[in-house]
């Protein structure tokens, strides 16, 4: 006879151990007799991969339909292009090397602007901690947050020219507010029960800040990354900033490339640009999700019901 405790439940061993002298209250301890019964077969290939398989299927069907419509000339390829034509255009752009300049410029604008926007984290902590400071700047922040930042582009171009700096500025402005405001929210929603417990041990403001507010709002190792939401939203805005900024006025970049290709009816090249941007967005979301997971070992799993 062996006692087998399901893996998922053995993680909650707390309950099992407290009641170890009361076997009757352990309904989830499974008793199996070795040799007589084969263990349940592992979930099949289909069950484990269901999500990925269906996702790929959806993409494949869409691309197939698209290609079919183009091949049957149901719509002029000038308007719709086709997956095969896009792949061919992309391959030649990479082979000739012309696209690398655009990628480098756009990537630089994104990285610099987004990197600078991280200043929203310390600023947000400051505003979340000092209530009066927050009241002071809240109306301005809210107004700026509500204004589509690309509306500021003409101004930024007057100030900074059509080179990369005007784009860095619009990326920064796009990303900094979501990051800042979500940090403020994280600090301001600090659990009052934790604060009361800390006060009962005579904690100083500085100690409360260091042990509760900071780990509760900033992605430090072993802490709560509520602001990941802000980083994600900020990243989306930053991407919009790069593309729209370059479309309005630029000397190089993916946005400019799309704009020129569009104006000259090179639909294939427009789609190459769109797919590159989409890939960048997906990669960013994925990276942030992984970052989030690294900080979450203390957090109960969501959606499994505790």
């Amino acid at each position: 006879m062996t006692l087998r405790i399901p893996r998922r439940l053995s993680g909650e061993g707390g309950i099992a151990r407290v009641n170890r002298d009361k076997d009757a209250v352990l309904p989830y301890v499974e008793v199996a007799t070795e040799g007589e019964k084969t263990p349940a077969p592992p979930p099949g290939f289909w069950t484990r991969r269901e999500r990925a398989i269906l996702g790929c299927l959806g993409v494949a069907v869409t691309l197939g339909l698209w290609e079919g419509i183009a091949a049957l000339r149901l719509v002029d390829p000038l308007f719709l292009s086709a997956p095969s034509r896009i792949v061919r255009a992309g391959a030649s752009m990479f082979a000739s090397g012309e696209i690398w300049t655009d990628l480098r410029v756009s990537g630089l604008e994104f990285a610099a602007g987004y990197g600078m926007a991280l200043v929203g984290i310390p600023l947000g902590i400051l505003l979340g901690w000092y209530r009066r400071l927050y009241y002071l700047v809240d109306p301005i922040l809210s107004a700026l947050y509500a204004t589509p930042r690309v509306a500021l582009l003409p101004l930024l171009i007057i100030w900074l020219g059509i080179g990369i700096w005007s784009k860095i500025a619009v990326v920064f402005l796009g990303a900094v507010f979501p990051i800042l405001l979500s940090t403020v929210a994280a600090v301001r929603t600090t659990d009052p029960r934790l604060l009361r417990a800390a006060h009962s041990f005579g904690a100083s403001d500085l100690q409360i800040f260091r042990t509760i507010v900071l780990p509760g709002s900033v992605p430090l190792p072993g802490s709560v990354p509520f602001i990941i939401t802000g980083l994600r939203r900020g990243g989306g805005r930053a991407l919009v900033g790069v593309v729209v900024g370059e479309m309005v006025a630029a000397t190089a970049g993916i946005g400019l490339m799309i704009s020129i290709a569009g104006n000259t009816f090179q639909t294939d090249r427009v789609f190459v640009g769109i797919f590159l941007i989409a890939a960048a967005g997906v990669a960013m979301v994925e990276a942030l999700t992984r970052l989030e997971r690294r900080f979450e070992k203390w957090r109960p799993p969501v959606g499994t019901g505790v």
């Binding site: 029960r193 417990a197 009962s200 041990f201 005579g202 709560v224 203390w298």
Partner: peptide, 20 residues
């Protein structure tokens, strides 16, 4: 007049730091 080290409180509500 304020919290004293001679006293310690146990609260009804969950007041543990979840990340510790």
């Amino acid at each position: 007049t304020g919290p004293r080290p001679e006293l310690a409180m146990v609260f009804q509500e969950p007041s543990l730091l979840p990340w510790r």
